[in-house]
Write a protein that binds this DNA or RNA. Structure first.
Lengths: 253, 253
DNA sequence: CGGGACCTTGACGCTCATCAATTGCAGTGG
DNA sequence: CCACTGCAATTGATGAGCGTCAAGGTCCCG
């Protein structure tokens, strides 16, 4: 009845999937038994670049990374911000090539798992397939919300919305407070998420601060008025599909 | 339900999936044998509205529909334009609620298939699971490209990009020419796709026409200069994953 | 032939991009 | 300990791109 003395490398991945579907003990063990190699990436370095087609799939174990695409004129659009447990190249599981680059926001540890091993698991274990399927669908849901954010909201609303999303996701990942979190993005990168310039991000952030909604200091965001911020950001967390766990947390508060 | 002697109702769906993975005859028959009910929707009518969580999943058989979300200030963002064969509520397969509304652009025929039937098929037939998985991942890839389009490109580039995408997808769906296609969107709806206003869409379209790249007349787009338009639109079709995908991982045998 | 979408065009103004310093802060080496 | 360096944050000035408002115009359908 003793647990193994070492923390299994893929534990964050299992935790993530457990938020998507109910897994049996066998499922969990099968996941943890996946072959993997570990990789460390310094802050600012690329995890991989656009166009690669790999035989492995990559899971973020700790740290933060962003995915981005580059437009023809050199403009950069960040299409995802990721934390521990996230699979950052789901497309490789479907044999598709990766259409974006991934760059570390902080020092990061990643696991590379052979896609064939994952695919085999998906066929043997329906619960795992369900979980990964739900994860992929939730990712798509986030993309849609980001489309609305960038396409139809002004800078202040966009900014507030993003801060709300990040707060909720940090809370979920760390089981921590929603009132403050480490923002691992520079203002330029925030602009690349929101389709704005760094200058305008700065002014917008200052404005949210002046309104008493947040404070931003040395890469840390403090949310003073959650209701105000989520109203300002037109934020409704349902698109994150965090419902089961989230509901419990909210009720307990 | 469906009579065996008739043209199989789900044929467009099978055709779509065959573009994603190689299916055996058995796979195809199993797909066509899925239980389904047919539904017709007039142009402009809703197929379903945001927030529904259904026991069926919906496949577009013919006609065109769009998916959209509505921002708090009433702004509408179209997050997808769909043609025959497309599954318009993949999320229901993962048991997630649908976070967008679907509205017919033309008179449309749809099939409703019980999600449990599809889920059973996905477990029994790996090739079908692969195909649907690839389809879902390609959809995500389109979302990412749209994020770049809206977030980092100016109106003229956005417009040109969208026209290129629609041209390629029409060509693929109808095995037809790429030089002309029926645009089933009003200029207001184009604006809702691109994050612009109808007025600016109009001016932008006029400008592309004045530049000799396209003509737009009574809902039909003529592309006079494909290279010019795709250059103007910063368009690289790889994100659509339409290439004759060879790299399919076959585990069995 | 009248009504209603949809398209078209002009005038005007606001958001946000652009350009350009300047400041603050952390790490580095003398 | 203090210049030195470099990146990020900050601030101002300016103007372009796109939104907004408003008024026809066109086409289609009943």
């Amino acid at each position: 009845m003793q647990l193994p003395t070492m923390v299994p490398r893929l534990a964050p991945f299992v935790r993530k999937l457990e938020g998507r579907a109910r897994l049996s003990l066998d499922d969990r063990e099968a996941l943890l038994a996946l072959p993997s190699t570990e990789r460390k990436v310094d802050a600012g370095k690329y995890v991989f670049k656009e166009g690669s087609r790999s035989e492995t799939c990559t899971i973020l174990l700790c740290g933060f990374v962003q995915r981005h695409k580059v437009a023809g004129d050199g403009g950069r659009q960040i299409v995802g911000v990721h934390m521990a447990g996230d699979v950052i190249d789901l497309a490789s599981l479907g044999g598709l090539s990766i259409d974006y680059s991934v760059q570390a926001l902080t020092p990061a540890k990643l696991a590379e798992v052979p896609t064939v091993a994952v695919q085999a698991l998906l066929r043997q274990r329906p619960a795992i397939a369900d979980a990964l399927w739900a994860d992929s669908l939730s990712e798509a849901s986030v993309f849609r919300e980001w489309l609305v954010n960038i396409g139809r909201r002004d800078a202040r609303t966009r900014m507030a919305h993003l801060l709300c999303e990040l707060a909720v996701r940090h809370q979920r990942a760390n089981a921590s407070e929603r009132t403050t979190f480490e923002l691992h993005l520079t203002q330029e990168q925030l602009g690349d998420v929101l389709g704005l310039t760094a200058v305008h991000v700065n002014r917008t952030m200052k404005r949210l601060a002046a309104e008493g909604l947040i404070r931003y200091q040395r890469g840390r965001v403090f949310i003073f008025d959650w209701n105000g911020l989520s109203a300002a950001g037109d934020f409704d967390p349902r698109y994150l599909n965090f419902a089961p766990t989230e509901a419990r947390v909210v009720l307990a508060t």
